[in-house]
Design a protein around this nucleic acid. Sequence first.
DNA 1: CTATCAGGAGGCTATTATGGCTTTAGATTC
DNA 2: GAATCTAAAGCCATAATAGCCTCCTGATAG
Lengths: 134, 134
Amino acid sequence: MLITRASEYAILSLILLSSASEPMDSETLSRELSIPKSFLAKILQALAKSGVLKSYKGAKGGFALDKMPKDISMLAVMSCVEGKAPAVFECAPAEKSCPSEQASVCSIWPFLHKLQGKIDSFLEELTLADIVEE
Amino acid sequence: MLITRASEYAILSLILLSSASEPMDSETLSRELSIPKSFLAKILQALAKSGVLKSYKGAKGGFALDKMPKDISMLAVMSCVEGKAPAVFECAPAEKSCPSEQASVCSIWPFLHKLQGKIDSFLEELTLADIVEE
DNA sequence: CTATCAGGAGGCTATTATGGCTTTAGATTC
DNA sequence: GAATCTAAAGCCATAATAGCCTCCTGATAG
């Protein structure tokens, strides 16, 4: 799994941004959410890089959603903020990535992969719209 | 959220233990799963304390499931291993626990709580049986 | 009873996550 | 163009996690 505070902060920001009509700067976001600004800035940058947010420099700049809430899945948010998709275990997503040569690890791989699939579809289907819309 | 390696290791161990007919010692488990033994021991101890596993000391001792796989939810596993239930944000589970006095944080609390509920039910319904049984 | 096996508990170190700070670059306003 | 605003990007410090090692305690086998 390996889900950290970065994902928490990302979700909080997205909820707040989804109801904003114009870009919010990181200063405002960090104050409103009581989140450390310098850390939040990096998270917002990651979200912008992956296309979830759009960033605007200069006066009246800030961050705004660049997709519809229904097109922003929790899986995508976590993937870009954490740097990789949340994995139950490193070898769970793809058989080839299993780093172990031990037979017993590979014997449980099908179960891990099954679990990973269930979590992935849940996080994929869970979008920002499910949270902020009625 | 804040899910760490401890949960990963717990799940791996439970999958392996669910197909074992007798207790497995932490030495064996760590070798089979390529997981550091000393860290794994603490995780297994936590699972034993919460009643998911039962521990047996002495020769032929080790750890074994103390519940049916269908009665072991991922939420319970994570809760006991992480020390607390996985929370989207500290104030998400209960309104009273919201540490902030800022109005805007409380304005998004309903959304956080909604998200938390969706995640909780998913993890509650997802049991070891869903992973290891057909 | 004794030797051995395995869990329980604690301290210590390395790695990673978190957060702070400064500089640079791009955009806006006047 | 100058001043100002804000994101982008880097480096550094601290805090939390992951992992290692040792000793202690309880249980079993002989």
